[in-house]
């Protein structure tokens, strides 16, 4: 008899939780934000197929700007003479329309929880490069105060946090600030971008970075204008070396 009662109770509980999760699934059917196909239970926001489908940058790349190298060359023809203030770039993925969806969801769609997975990937990338392993602290590309307030979070900082948590590195917050309300770089032609972020960044508290090797974290690397401006500010404030870590890079 008690057995039966327990059975009924168990059924009731299943029914109840099934109803609740059924309702949630009815309103928010889980689907992958990249391919828009249904998600499996263990997946979160993006399906496993899509994650493994992104193009990883594993070819030989330019030591400085991180661009894939033409065969046989050590430094790429592209960044010769540009004089970047950072000494190296590493990115996890090659920029594509699909990865763009993830970055957009992360940046504009408040899918903050994506930071964890992206952070893990970035940590993996970081560990592969000697110069990055030697770095002592990490700095995220900042947003302007008004933009940060509007958005509520800084996606680069979330990324940096996740990487630090993964590797036990030190994240230096509030060292770098964005003084100018710059226009979004994506809205500008490449040649105007350098101008847009010129003198936009300043180091307010140099104590964390003086005489240190710094990893600068951002979400996307396209022309490098933004991170270059940041690196310039960091170097001027006393950082020994700046290397750049981003999720995607234009190739």
């Amino acid at each position: 008899m008690t057995n039966f009662k327990a059975h009924i109770l168990r059924c009731g509980r299943t029914l109840w939780s099934d109803c609740l999760s059924g309702l949630a699934d009815c309103i928010f059917p889980p689907f992958c934000l990249v391919c828009e196909k249904g998600l499996e239970e263990r997946d979160h926001l993006v399906c496993g197929r899509c994650w493994s489908g992104f193009e990883i940058i594993d070819r030989p790349v330019c030591e400085v700007c991180g661009a894939p190298l033409p065969k046989g060359e050590r430094r790429c023809p592209a960044c010769r003479g540009k004089g970047f203030s950072f000494s190296g770039v590493r990115a996890a993925y090659s920029y594509s329309a699909d990865i763009r969806k993830i970055i957009h969801a992360f940046k504009f769609g408040r899918k903050i929880s994506l930071a964890k997975r992206l952070g893990r990937i970035l940590a993996f990338v970081l560990l592969q490069d000697e110069r990055f392993r030697q770095a002592e602290c990490m700095v995220a590309v900042p947003l302007h105060v008004s933009r940060q307030r509007e958005r509520g979070y800084n996606q680069s900082e979330l990324l940096a946090q996740a990487v630090c948590a993964e590797l036990g590195m030190k994240l230096v917050k509030d060292a770098l600030v964005r003084r100018k309300r710059t226009k979004p770089q994506t809205a500008l032609a490449p040649r105007r971008r350098t101008r847009n972020v010129e003198k936009a960044f300043r180091v307010t508290d140099a104590s964390g970075i003086v005489d240190r090797k710094v990893v600068l974290v951002d979400d996307v690397f396209t022309t490098g204008a933004t991170v270059d401006a940041c690196a310039k500010a960091l170097r001027r404030a006393g950082a020994v070396d700046v290397v750049v870590l981003t999720v995607t890079r234009a190739t």
């Binding site: 059924g22 828009e36 969806k101």
Partner: peptide, 14 residues
């Protein structure tokens, strides 16, 4: 992110 229904494979219970 807001999807606009590009594939038929998505499950739309509602």
């Amino acid at each position: 992110m807001v999807a606009t229904g590009r594939t038929a494979a998505m499950n739309r219970p509602a």
